[in-house]
């Protein structure tokens, strides 16, 4: 059963993505919406489309894909479908790294550049991933309870650190940082979108090369060795590229949780656990989910807008509880 690439399933997800993108761009707005398309767009409307709405929807797709792929890779690394960048503390660590430079970097350099925020988020996120992996893994097996508890501890620590930094920050910084922390895809320039796109594309390709290692690795570390795979290289590549995608996303759009949990789970229910199918389909599924979620975040309380991170937490947390309940039957 050497699998062929899931072409028809990918096309199906793409086919669903198109109307979602259309809705995201044109449905639920006053002013420029789908009705104004028939009459042709004036220059001002073109500007709104090109500089405000298109970057946002592309960002939603790219970040969604990146977070879902990072989820798939981390789940393989931890040999557990409950591993998720948010739950195990990668996202909150990256957020702490970012806030650290935003608040304290201003003191040192006057003006903090985006790349400094990104690098800081990445370094802390990388360290946290490595630390949690070391904590949760013993003799080649991962302890789920330890993994989740380590995640709780890291989340608490990093959350406290972030709050502490915010409490010493001055008022102007505070408002922007708080808003960004809740996750927002609004008002991002094309340059940011391009940066995240390149990083997500690169990391996804690198992780895609490892799909067979992932299949072997979930059998256990020793088993993967017996099947001929190089575990050390696999581990650092997964940690590096997952942390890279998650921290870049966090640095630019804040913490958006549960994408990496919900999407791979749904895809597995659909096509089974084979990572050759789960990884590429999760990338598409993640893009679809975040475009839809961001659209909902915009229209649900229109004209008010929910932060996308908040909406994903509202959707994702019950989903996580449901998964836990289902697994409880397995543990008994």
């Amino acid at each position: 059963m050497a699998k062929t690439f899931p072409i028809s399933k990918s096309l199906l997800l793409l086919a669903l993505l198109l109307p979602a993108v259309f809705a995201h761009l044109f449905v639920g707005y006053n002013g420029l919406n789908w009705q104004s398309l028939s009459g042709g767009l004036n220059p001002q409307q073109w500007f709104i489309l090109q500089e405000l709405r298109l970057p946002r929807v592309v960002m939603a797709m790219v970040v969604g894909a990146g977070l879902a792929v990072a989820g798939v890779a981390l789940q393989a690394l931890f040999r557990n479908p409950l591993a998720e960048p948010g739950l195990i503390g990668v996202a909150s660590s990256s957020a702490f790294g970012a806030v650290f430079i935003m608040v304290l970097g201003g003191v040192i350099w006057q003006q903090v550049a985006l790349w400094q925020v990104g690098v800081s988020a990445f370094v802390v996120g990388l360290l946290a991933t490595w630390l949690i992996y070391r904590l949760a893994t013993n003799k080649g097996q991962t302890d789920v309870a330890l993994m989740l508890l380590a995640g709780v501890a890291v989340n608490a620590l990093m959350g406290a650190g972030t709050q502490m930094l915010l409490s010493i920050a001055d008022l102007v910084e505070l408002r922007s940082v708080t808003f960004w922390l809740m996750g927002s895809l609004v008002n991002l320039p094309w340059s940011s979108v391009l940066l995240v796109s390149v990083i997500v594309l690169l990391s996804t390709m690198m992780l895609w090369r490892l799909v067979r290692s992932m299949n072997a690795f979930v059998l256990g570390e020793h088993s993967a060795t017996y099947l001929g795979f190089d575990n050390d290289r696999f581990k650092w590549q997964v940690i590096f590229f997952s942390a890279l995608m998650v921290s870049t996303a966090v640095a630019l759009v804040g913490v958006i949780g549960f994408v990496g949990l919900v999407v791979p789970h749904m895809i597995r229910l659909w096509v089974g656990a084979d990572h050759r199918l789960v990884l590429p389909l999760s990338a598409l599924g993640g893009a679809l989910l975040l475009v839809l979620a961001d659209w909902l975040a915009r229209i649900l309380l229109y004209p008010l807008e929910l932060p996308i991170g908040l909406l994903m937490a509202l959707l994702g947390a019950p989903f996580f509880l449901m998964m836990l309940l289902k697994r409880r039957q397995g543990w008994q």
Binding site: A2, V144, V211, R212, G228, R276
Partner: peptide, 26 residues
């Protein structure tokens, strides 16, 4: 912890004999 079928698990062993490049995985 992953929902592999028995057939998939066994084929993981057989696939080892096919070589390791990504293209061959499909």
């Amino acid at each position: 912890q992953f929902d592999f079928s028995v057939r998939q698990l066994v084929s993981l062993g057989l696939e080892i004999q096919l070589g390791s490049e990504l293209v061959k995985a499909y």
